[in-house]
Nucleic acid binder design. Structure first.
Length: 479
RNA sequence: GCUCCCGUGGUGUAGUCCGGCUAAUCAUAUCGGCCUCUCGAGCCGAUCACACGGGUUCGAAUCCCGUCGGGAGCACCA
């Protein structure tokens, strides 16, 4: 406990303080899949700020209908909560955008009445062209009455998808073309996982957020810098309603080296069977990290170490592994795992019985595990290939010189040789690697006393988290 | 192309707002050495950075201008 205190004290300097007596923040995941390591920055930062300021954190499912590419998934809601629980993120209230459609409609009407928005029947192409060229379309100058009528028609289903949208009036000469008369509502007939086909006019994020951030009394909004334009849009809408603006905080883009994260892509690969599910380590989902034995505290430290800078960063996954290793090294008991075993026969004088190996080199109190010694032993294929003709030590047993499938015993005293793991025989075992390939091999029989889900280290192989024991199946965390 | 953001060692990060206390912090990585019957952990040491060019100033990583480089947005996605 004192260590934890020290840690967080240190970490405190990494985040800039925020102003305000009361802090209310929200995190808004889009439920197209479970949270992955990329999303964890958003939730951890929110959680951290709220905890440090004794504030309130709202979990707000940003489940408007989305695009065809990013599909909402009914199971994602629970997986997101599951991930947050695991991460130790405490939220105090839960909301769903899909529950609040009537509220958005109400304010949509108000904004039309104020003459600050209009219903546009231009095609998407036309709309984009006008935006690029800064030209106003004829719909922009329609009367309020006409707009309200068309809006009602939208709600009544008189338009098909793409035939009409509600747009806000900004300034078609706005220096940022992207800002010009953005779309606030559009028609979509796709089925929603929570409210099915109840609605077919859906708000876009800038509008729904402008309304909810105000209604729910948000004091600070934390978002990636990919969403900075949304700040401006929200501020514009708040101005129209004469509402006070919360404070915005931004962080830069975070990428893992050599890792490409895309939920819609994973969704597709899972659908086609190319990935086994969201447990697949390649998804980097929080669930898959838990399965590998990554500690939530390690992930939190990893993320907090980046602070709040707007700099874009690319970090190797080994940085996360280093954090994790610190936390699990003393917990994880040691066992022998022989990947791709090759059987060799020992020749020469040796007394056969059993050897004792400590469960943990730094914790003798955990006792020893016993391994029977035998003439025929299994060693890893890698060393068998690389160390031919050389002298090596079978750890805690004896020294041998490799000669094909023979091991000529050269003594049993400890010597300064490379020491490898070995087994007389063993239980079948499989280890799933981070790239989802599987390494097969044998583990010592003592493994049968290991509990499921236990985090252990296979000596000279890496840390793994046990998933099952018949046969032994484990997920590789890192070296 | 347009709008905005960012540029400190291999990778991240502190310091930049309020210029001197910094011959620039910490972590990780790398390389040595010690220790250890694991290629794990631990301990000790070493290497390595203020993008560039001007300006302001007694003094600039810190302020100003310019250049270059990187990123994000420019969707009827979030």
């Amino acid at each position: 406990m004192p260590e934890f205190f020290e840690e967080s004290e240190e970490e405190e300097d990494q985040l800039p303080d925020i102003e305000g007596e009361e802090v209310v923040m929200r995190m808004a995941p889009y439920p197209s899949g479970p949270l992955h390591i990329g999303n964890s920055r958003m939730v951890i930062l929110n959680d951290e700020y709220v905890k440090r300021n004794d504030g309130k954190l709202i979990l707000f499912f940003d489940d408007t209908i989305g695009s065809k590419e990013k599909k909402l998934q009914h199971y994602a809601y629970d997986m997101i909560k599951d991930g947050l629980d695991w991460l130790g993120v405490d939220y105090h209230e839960v909301y769903y955008k899909s529950d609040r459609m009537d509220i958005y409609y109400e304010y949509a009407e108000k904004i039309l009445e104020k003459g600050e928005a209009y219903i546009c029947e231009c095609s998407a192409e036309r709309l984009q062209k006008n935006r690029r060229e800064g030209e106003e379309c004829p719909h922009r100058s329609q009367s309020v009455e006409k707009n309200l009528k068309m809006w009602q028609a939208m709600l009544d289903g008189a338009y098909e998808e793409g035939e009409a949208v509600m747009r806000i009036k900004t300034d078609m000469q706005h220096p940022n073309p992207a800002f010009r008369d953005r779309v606030l509502f559009r028609i979509c007939n796709r089925e929603h996982p929570r409210v099915a086909n109840k609605y077919h006019v859906w708000p876009l994020l800038e509008f729904s957020w402008a309304i909810d951030d105000h209604l729910l009394g948000m004091t600070h909004i934390l978002r990636g810098k990919d969403l900075v334009m949304e700040d401006q849009m929200e501020e514009h809408i708040w101005d129209i309603f004469d509402w006070d603006a919360p404070e915005f905080l931004h962080y830069g883009m975070l990428r893992l080296k050599d890792v490409h994260l895309s939920k819609s892509e994973f969704q597709e690969k899972i659908r086609t069977g190319e990935m086994s599910g969201w447990n697949d380590p390649r998804t980097w989902s929080l669930q898959s990290l838990r399965r590998r034995g990554i500690q939530p505290e390690a992930l939190r430290d990893f993320i907090l170490g980046f602070g709040m800078s707007k700099t874009d960063i690319e970090v190797p996954a080994s940085k996360l592994y280093a954090e994790n290793r610190k936390m699990i090294d003393s917990k994880a008991n040691r066992y022998f795992f022989v990947p791709e075993p090759v059987k060799i026969t020992l020749e020469g004088d040796i007394e056969l019985d059993e050897v004792e190996v400590p469960r943990h080199p730094d914790h003798e109190e955990r006792g020893n595990r016993k391994i029977k010694t035998a003439r025929e032993v299994l060693i890893p294929k890698k060393e068998w290939e690389e160390k031919q003709g050389e002298e090596i030590r079978l750890k805690n047993f004896c020294n041998i010189k490799l000669d094909g499938k023979k091991g000529v015993i050269t003594g049993s005293g400890r010597r300064d040789l490379i020491k490898i793991q070995w087994l007389p025989e063993g239980l079948d075992a499989e280890v799933e690697m981070p790239d989802s390939t599987v390494v097969t091999g044998k583990v010592e029989k003592g493994m049968s006393s290991v509990s499921e889900e236990e985090l252990i280290q296979f000596e000279r192989f890496g840390f793994v988290k046990v998933q099952g024991k018949e046969p032994v199946f484990a997920c590789y965390a890192h070296s």
